[in-house]
């Protein structure tokens, strides 16, 4: 563009006019169709990505057209709910609950477990919505459907599950015992870790055998997936754990266990205080106040004798 600016501009418009006049309409239609191909391809890829995300993050609690599980059935959700709200909800449920969103509050009341923050990117959210829309609309949904969780789990051994929970037995693929983060009734008075929720009532909360199995297969929460995505539990281990959690399924911890824990805490405190008192028995307890008290005592004694 080295020539005069205004004259160049005029020349270009002139050229365009000539082009429109000369290029046949058919060409234009063909070009438009060609341009749409990538859009179609993208849509297909998005649904594919969505299927992966759904399988790993959502299928633990949701179905598409197979009825309520831990969470609601998502069939047709993209048409009944506002897509903008859906996107925000999937991206960060806790933000909406915190903000007091009415729909969110209703869901929290209706379902036993609040949906965790899954840490999905906005691309993932769009993809999974596209996938849900696609699955809701087509008959194929019933054929292909979400992954394994609905398959009947193998029968579990609660005893082995307990060992896995407390770390007496190793997980096949590595991975820490549940107890390092979770507590549950029936593993002794001290209980387990407090990073994750107490699992005493988990069997009911997470939707029984099927719900727990799908949860532990897909491990949707960010904290757990960080640990388990690279070293998943085997179906047999999941069944054993489910069996153990089911066995201990009571609505709250028995009072006796809490009392035992409190007693242990008091005994430990007393022992620690005693050790400290013994170790530092020769500590300096103040100099001036005892000195003055002693001198006053001697003085008073002397004075009393004289009078």
């Amino acid at each position: 563009m080295t020539g005069d600016q205004s004259s160049g501009h005029c020349k270009r418009r002139h050229f365009l006019r000539i082009a429109f006049r000369r290029v046949p309409l058919a060409y234009v239609v063909a070009a438009a169709a060609f341009a749409m191909i990538p859009a179609y391809v993208t849509g297909a890829a998005q649904a594919d990505q969505g299927s992966t995300v759904f399988a790993t993050k959502c299928a633990a609690c949701h179905t598409i057209g197979k009825g309520k599980s831990v969470g609601p059935d998502l069939k047709g959700i993209t048409t009944t709910e506002d897509p903008g709200w859906l996107a925000r909800w999937i991206a960060a449920p806790s933000a909406l609950v915190k903000a007091g969103d009415p729909t969110a509050m209703r869901l929290v009341k209706q379902y036993p477990l609040q949906m965790p923050d899954l840490g999905l990117s906005s691309g993932d959210v769009d993809a999974v919505l596209a996938y849900v829309a696609q699955q809701s609309g087509s008959a194929r949904a019933h054929v292909k459907g979400p992954l394994a969780p609905v398959a009947a789990p193998p029968p579990g051994d609660a005893g082995v599950g307990r060992e896995l929970f407390v770390g007496g037995a190793r997980f096949h693929n590595g991975g820490p015992p549940c107890m390092s983060c979770h507590s549950i009734s029936g593993i002794g008075a001290l209980g387990g870790g407090t990073l994750g929720p107490d699992l005493t009532d988990a069997y009911r909360k997470y939707g029984g055998d099927a719900g727990l199995a799908s949860f532990l297969t897909s491990v949707p929460t960010p904290t757990m997936s960080a640990v388990w995505s690279k070293q998943p539990m085997t179906p047999q281990e999941i069944a054993n754990l489910t069996g153990f959690v089911k066995e201990g399924a009571v609505s709250e911890r028995p009072l006796g266990a809490i009392g035992k824990l409190a007693l242990l805490a008091v005994i430990a405190l007393v022992i620690i205080v005693l050790i400290g008192a013994l170790y530092w028995r020769r500590r300096l307890l103040g100099v001036r106040i005892p000195l003055v008290a002693r001198a006053n005592m001697l003085f008073n004694r002397k004075y009393a004798r004289r009078s």
């Binding site: 400290g276 530092w280 300096l284 103040g286 100099v287 001036r288 106040i289």
Partner: peptide, 15 residues
């Protein structure tokens, strides 16, 4: 090392 979090030989403010 044993006394690092509790120094047993400190004067009190009363001293």
């Amino acid at each position: 090392l044993g006394n690092i979090f509790f120094n047993p030989n400190l004067p009190t403010i009363d001293d």
